[in-house]
Design a protein around this nucleic acid. Structure first.
Lengths: 259, 259
DNA sequence: ACGCATGTGCTCAATTGTGCTCGTTTCCGA
DNA sequence: TCGGAAACGAGCACAATTGAGCACATGCGT
């Protein structure tokens, strides 16, 4: 990987995400932070990005919606770490299904532009993927929900009934060992269930704040999850319960340097 | 193997990979690195690649998509006038179907926030409608096309086969009295036909630059259109032909503010 | 045979990319 | 407002890569 190549990738990344961090880039490329800093400095001088402390942001002015933006930043580091670990699960040629949600949106941003089929019911993810060249994108239709930007309902489920994907990345509001996986909205829950039926492997992505939480509507029992990717180490007994239920647990490393 | 031949191969290699290395090329061709360096230098001076330390990367065309943004501004005033006239056709409680395209996008922007069900296969329109409170929004899914942001294909048509809307606002690239209504892409044309089948009334919206133009793929004959909204007065014989085919013609008044 | 252009390989000092250290600056939570 | 942690930039060291120069081989026309 050459410097120019790497810088191009940094710009690509920045085109999809609102920001990049020095530490994350260093970890991703397997290089020192010094090198990344030099890259960012160079790109900054060329006017291709704007340097910030700890990273960089795109050059555009961006009068983005604050509410959505806010949510992004909530536990952004955790979500990003989880998304990064989740991307590792994806191989060229895969057919993946992305649930709506901020963690999966982050995942979409981190997707490499490789031979891939991505199915999603999230308007934001669809938008995010619009510029990818090589990714084949199938959008599940449905009724558009304002709060989550998700497309849900019978039409979504109709299309899902005709689909079969390799991997489904499921987001949720509550992950409880005995009460199962939950979300606040009944229609969304039904759609999530339909997505599970369409997938060979169900991968649950949720940061540690969701753990042992209960939301209103149950999506599924914990043993219906094949893999659970989260950001903080679980208690040993929790891992034991999960493993006993056939759930593989992956704890995402926050970027190398621990604080 | 001649030098020119070798250089051509290097360029081919670079067209497929993101980069090439001097050492790899030297090994592959069984030549010294000096020779490869001279090749790369030559190609760099010719502007056919960009030299880096240890190898080379392709020239960046940086072909960002101005096309979509450009299209917005093209004939914006006409499109806006048409959209304004089209909105008059919509009543509270209606179920309307919006085609993808810049004119219909403009229409979506001008929609009053009233009791309404809007169905669309356009990602941009979906996004535009995301903030509306009272409008019930149904998004047709399908494969996402990069150039137009439209969702098309069998899944789109599957959902459409289950729907019935009051009014369909159809966009097109060519409107010809004898050859009918046309568009450049076959898959999009098929989806547009499916949308027509799902509608009680088909309303064609197209500015006068599309008139008597032909694009590649035919969507329908002119007599399958119920209403045609455009921005410039047509010739009297044209109107006569249209009326004879059962097409109601509406000419939108350009708004007062001329510059 | 001769002169010359071209293509190639080798050597070596100079350049570049990178990692590391260290003192300074900036940020964030108490 | 303050203190510690994180991030920063300058400077240095080291290794890989580079370019210039030279030598050698081949091909071509005279």
């Amino acid at each position: 990987m050459f410097a120019d190549e790497r810088r191009k990738k940094i710009l690509e990344r920045l085109a999809h995400a609102q920001s990049v961090t020095v530490s994350a880039l260093a970890a991703e490329f397997g290089l020192s932070e010094s090198t990344i800093r030099r890259d960012l400095q160079e790109l900054d001088e060329l006017g291709l990005l704007k340097r910030t402390h700890g990273g960089a942001v795109p050059i555009e002015v961006a009068s983005f919606e604050p509410t959505l933006q806010e949510k992004h930043t909530q536990r952004a580091k955790e979500k990003s770490a989880i998304a990064k670990a989740a991307v590792e699960w994806i191989q060229p040629g895969d057919t993946i299904l992305l649930d709506s949600g901020t963690t999966t949106l982050q995942l979409a941003r981190l997707l490499p532009d490789m031979e891939l089929t991505v199915v999603t019911n999230s308007l934001m993810i669809a938008e995010e993927l619009a510029s990818y060249e090589r990714i084949h994108r199938l959008i599940l239709g449905g009724e558009l929900r304002t709060t989550t930007g998700a497309m849900v309902g019978p039409f979504t489920e109709l299309v899902l009934s005709r689909l079969h994907v390799d991997k489904f990345f499921l987001g949720a509001n509550g992950v409880h060992l005995t009460f199962g996986v939950t979300t606040p909205n009944a229609i969304e829950a039904a759609t999530k269930r339909a997505m599970m039926r369409a997938a060979r492997e169900v991968i649950l992505v949720a940061d540690h704040s969701k753990l042992q939480q209960r939301s209103l509507v149950k999506i599924c029992d914990i043993d219906e999850i094949h893999t659970f990717i989260t950001d903080a180490p679980l208690a040993t007994d929790e891992v034991e319960v999960l493993n006993r239920n056939g759930v593989k647990v992956v704890v995402a490393e926050e970027t190398q340097q621990k604080e």
